[in-house]
């Protein structure tokens, strides 16, 4: 059996006295989709941001492909940057660069960070934009797009650096309900193409249909994990059951 593409072991992280991650393992095989679910404040975002070094855990290791960091050794900025280079990230608030066109947003990583030729990067960016259904928006500015379109640009920008894994932090939570579908559809088709994805989400239908594995977090630990048919349909842990129950019936 080949080693998993992404492997995080024993992640621990505190904010002051608040122990947010208490020993988290995440193992992601190449070409698979992992969904992180759990109540607000359970540490989902912190886990995701630890995988690309936007947060620095105190303890634990993260390996993506052949780049590994051991957080306990306080890796320097260069080591963290190398780890970060292995992944792309899609933010809840899209964080597009407002002063750049859609095309320039997508080519920003390849051109400004990877030093690839602009013409080549632009050609590839146009293909990515077509891929997310925005071929005609290349010259628009982010403010001129709908929330769903902005988030699809965010996805194209994340893919443009050719990452090994794409991290999504609640990519549809800030969207009007009628715009959620277009973004989830793009993500579903990426999964079908074989992209490796780690997705923090509250969209249980997406998790059930697309995820290969689901991790349920609560209080900084992984309470339960497995294929969605188990974790989401027939959970073993009472805490998981309670969480899913509340999602189904918020009142």
């Amino acid at each position: 059996m080949t080693a998993p593409l992404l492997e995080a072991r024993g992640l621990e992280k505190s904010f002051g006295a608040n122990r947010v991650l208490r020993g988290i393992d995440v193992v992601v095989p190449a070409g698979s989709v992992t969904c992180l679910i759990g109540p607000s404040g359970s540490g989902k975002t912190t886990v995701l941001r630890s995988l690309n070094g936007l947060e620095h855990p105190e303890v634990g290791t993260v390996r993506v492909g052949d780049v590994a960091v051991d957080w306990a050794t306080r890796p320097d900025a260069r080591a963290v940057a190398r780890l970060r280079g292995q992944s792309g990230m899609v933010f809840q608030a899209h964080n597009l660069f407002p002063h750049m066109t859609v095309l320039d947003n997508v080519t920003s990583g390849p051109v400004f960070a990877q030093g690839r030729p602009r013409a080549e990067a632009q050609q590839e960016a146009r293909e990515l934009l077509a891929r997310v259904g925005l071929a005609d928006k290349a010259d628009a500015f982010p403010v001129q797009l709908s929330g769903g379109q902005q988030q699809r640009v965010g996805i194209a920008r994340a893919l443009a650096t050719r990452p090994k894994v794409v991290l999504f932090d609640e990519p549809t939570s800030a969207l009007d309900p009628e715009l959620v579908g277009e973004v989830l559809q793009v993500m579903q088709s990426l999964a079908a193409e074989g992209w490796t994805m780690v997705v923090v989400t509250h969209e249980m239908r997406f998790a059930r249909q697309v995820a290969d594995q689901v991790l349920f977090l609560d209080g900084g630990v992984v309470v339960e994990q497995g294929p969605p048919s188990e974790v989401l349909v027939d959970p073993r842990e009472p805490r998981t059951r309670q969480f899913l129950q509340r999602l189904l019936d918020p009142l």
Binding site: L54, A81, G85, S87, M89, L96, S108, G109, A113, A158
Partner: peptide
């Protein structure tokens, strides 16, 4: 953060 995640 967005700039850092695209590698800048």
């Amino acid at each position: 953060e967005a700039a850092m995640t695209v590698g800048m």
